[in-house]
């Protein structure tokens, strides 16, 4: 009997178990899944419709102005050139579609992630539970997220957004937690000594002082979201990723390059602009500047 056993017969039916579990979830939680799906679809579609609803030239102008105001006038020129290239390559709609998906899933990731980070910072227990989950999430290669998303939500923008928000959330959680924990003991004591309730301590002391760290998390989340949105075109999320994908499938180097360049330009714009939020401009606030001007005049 023993001689008939060979190692190739050794089989643990993990695949079958997982399929069974997925079937079970799909059978029993249809309502929940549909609810999530509808909510996300609503948010993402609205963002996209909203952005596409603005005349392209106007939107481009707004982006250029924001770049010049928040970062520097040189960066404003870079933004101008980027916009010109995107129009010139004829990938405006794809870019906006990607941007909408990035913003939509980032907003969702932040809305979920920041409160988790706050909870982590306030209770060591929560941190002990969440930290390994975050570690696990960050060791997974990005496209692994596509599989469950596609299984539960099919193909299209919704599973793309879900995979993206899950993939992009960890930095927001981590850096919120870190930022709050890094607030100096004395600042927390000062808050308490002057009679803050727990809520006031969070809102008036901890969050404001943690803001630079939280904003760094927001920046990272947005950048991760962009990279994921491109990958998510594999399950039909559309946008610039689709342009690249088509280029690859047709072995059309030019098309692939154009899509890639669009992604890079969008990445640089998003990165610099989100970095500039939360750091006060060196020197003086707008109010002080106004005061000065009015004082002189």
């Amino acid at each position: 009997m023993a001689s008939e056993f060979s190692i190739t017969d050794f089989h643990i039916p993990i695949g079958e178990w997982v399929s069974a579990a997925v079937d079970w979830i799909q059978d029993n939680f249809t309502g929940v899944l549909d609810g999530i799906s509808d909510a996300i679809k609503f948010i993402v579609d609205n963002f996209e419709d909203g952005l596409l609803g603005i005349p392209p030239v106007l939107l481009a102008l707004i982006i250029i102005l924001i770049a010049a105001w928040r970062v520097s006038w040189r960066f404003g020129i870079f933004a101008f050139v980027s916009m010109a290239l995107i129009f010139g390559m004829g990938i405006w709609d794809e870019t906006i579609s990607t941007l909408a998906l990035v913003i939509g899933s980032s907003v969702l990731a932040l809305v979920i992630g920041i409160p988790i980070g706050i909870a982590m910072a306030r209770k060591d227990m929560v941190e002990a539970v969440v930290r390994p989950v975050l570690d696990f999430m960050q060791t997974m290669p990005p496209f692994v997220y596509l599989i469950p998303a596609a299984i539960f939500f099919g193909l299209g923008k919704v599973p793309g957004a879900i995979a993206t928000l899950v993939f992009a959330m960890p930095p927001a959680v981590r850096l919120t937690n870190l930022g709050i924990r890094q607030v100096s003991e004395e600042h927390v004591e000062a808050g308490r000594a002057f009679g803050c309730t727990d809520r006031q301590l969070l809102l008036k002391v901890q969050l404001p002082l943690a803001m630079p760290s939280i904003m760094a998390g927001v920046n990272q989340t947005i950048m991760l979201a962009l990279s994921m949105v491109v990958i998510a075109s594999m399950i039909g999320a559309g946008g610039l990723g689709n342009t690249v994908l088509t280029g690859i499938q047709r072995l059309d180097v030019g098309l692939g390059f154009e899509g890639g360049l669009g992604v890079v330009l969008l990445a640089i714009l998003l990165d610099r602009i989100t970095q500039s939020v939360g750091t006060r401009k060196p020197g003086v606030s707008l109010r002080m500047r106004l005061k000065k001007v009015l004082g002189k005049g």
Binding site: S184, E186, H187, E189, A190, R192, A193, F194, G195, C196, T197, V205, P208, L209, M211
Partner: peptide, 21 residues
Amino acid sequence: LIDMRRHKMSMVFQSFALMPH
């Protein structure tokens, strides 16, 4: 306790603990 801290006792700290924002 919170009421007491607000009205009866206040505190000054070694490294000031001011809010930079």
